[in-house]
Design a protein around this nucleic acid. Structure first.
Lengths: 220, 220
DNA sequence: CCGAATTGCCTTACACCGTAAGGATAATCC
DNA sequence: GGATTATCCTTACGGTGTAAGGCAATTCGG
């Protein structure tokens, strides 16, 4: 049945891993089948025996990033668990700023990512939220995390660049409020801002749960 | 000096307008210089006399979308103003779901977009927040709005598709929590969720402003 | 009023992209 | 040891962004 002729140089995993490395070092636009093959010591078309298309490759990258989400200890404290998931998620954006847009843009609806979705949604459900409340709170938190990840990633990218920095471009002339604000939008400030916004959203989820308990004390 | 030989068929504005139409009808990936030229009855290279490169074109599209933000009446009520800006922003995502990712990914640091940034930041400042607080609140709200816009746009896109719908794909088998939640994540529910999250964030800004007033009652 | 200059659009060309089709090689099984 | 089959390669096609240069129409200087 499972004959295995010729020892393989390539696997799905090594391809995905190399693709992420390539994106991080050269940028998302520079991920081409030829460049990726080159990095793996292989011709472009060889990749197609392991991955059906570039679009599927992007899905696999998304899945690889999604499964990096760490859930921490299963404490039974939903707030700690959501905090852990959220920090783990933003950490992915910080470590893979150029790949993160894939994670933010694509849904968690592949077989590889659904288990992750399931675990996250379960935290909300165990916290006492009904399906509708779970959907709402999940979306709101997700909006925030994706936006934060994208912006932090873009900021990392922008501050790495040497060719253009808004601060000394002169563009800010005539925009005094922007001028006095940009310094506070720099990378070192963003983690504090992230934590602050995260607490705001978790507080609101806490309110929602309390409200649910009052109105439907015994249902789940 | 400014001789004007030959009446032009093309202007920057018509090019940008056509590009947005093309993206919305065919998708972001289908925006090519040749396709765009074709839509304008012109060869691809003719565009380059008006726009330096495709990247600049994307910047112009971003600026065009950004300037669609409506600020409503200048009431002096910061909360109403931020609500108006936020709703106007998500409206852009809903009307231009396939172009919106450009707006979410690119910064407001071109000459065309800076006036918009300035007006938005001014709302926070006039509300009584110092520069650092302005930066934080602006970012948090921005994270939320960008995430919401992206997800709503992606949802619109996904529900338009006929080839794949998660609900009847069978993928959800074995993921009961996801299964009972997806229905609540459908497009009709998203506007309610958006409003809810928006109020949460505006409430937190209100708290922040109040706190600022207490600690530094007379400074701006 | 006519040549010169300039602008707006076009033609051609190049390197790169994703990928369809089919070929060569080497490890395994019967 | 011959057939099978998984892996990788070669070639080729139509698409991409865009650099270089050409040509025609309009306006200006004389």
């Amino acid at each position: 049945m499972t004959t295995m002729p010729k020892k393989p140089k390539l696997t799905r995993e090594t391809i995905v891993e190399a693709a992420i490395e390539l994106i991080e070092s050269e940028g998302l636009d520079s991920l081409s089948t030829r460049a990726l093959g080159n990095r793996l010591g292989v011709q472009a078309m060889s990749l197609y025996h392991h991955v059906e298309s570039k679009d599927v490759l992007l899905d696999l990258i998304t899945a690889r990033l999604a499964t990096m989400i760490e859930f921490g200890d299963h404490t039974g404290n939903w707030r700690c668990e959501l905090e852990a998931v959220s920090r783990s998620y933003i950490d992915i954006a910080r470590r893979y700023p150029r790949s993160f847009p894939l994670l933010a843009a694509r849904r968690f609806n592949t077989p590889e990512t659904l288990p992750v979705l399931e675990r996250i949604l379960s935290i909300f459900r165990r916290a006492g939220l009904p399906p509708a409340g779970t959907a709402a709170s999940f979306r709101i938190l997700g909006y925030y995390l994706n936006g934060a990840g994208l912006t932090e990633g873009a900021t990392i990218e922008a501050e790495r660049r040497t060719d253009f920095h808004l601060q000394d471009s002169g563009f800010l002339e005539g925009f005094p409020v922007s001028g006095e604000t940009v310094a506070h939008l720099a990378l070192p400030n963003l983690s504090g801002i992230f934590e602050k916004g995260l607490e705001v959203i978790l507080d609101s989820i806490e309110d929602e749960i309390r409200l649910t308990r009052v109105n439907r004390p015994h249902s789940v």
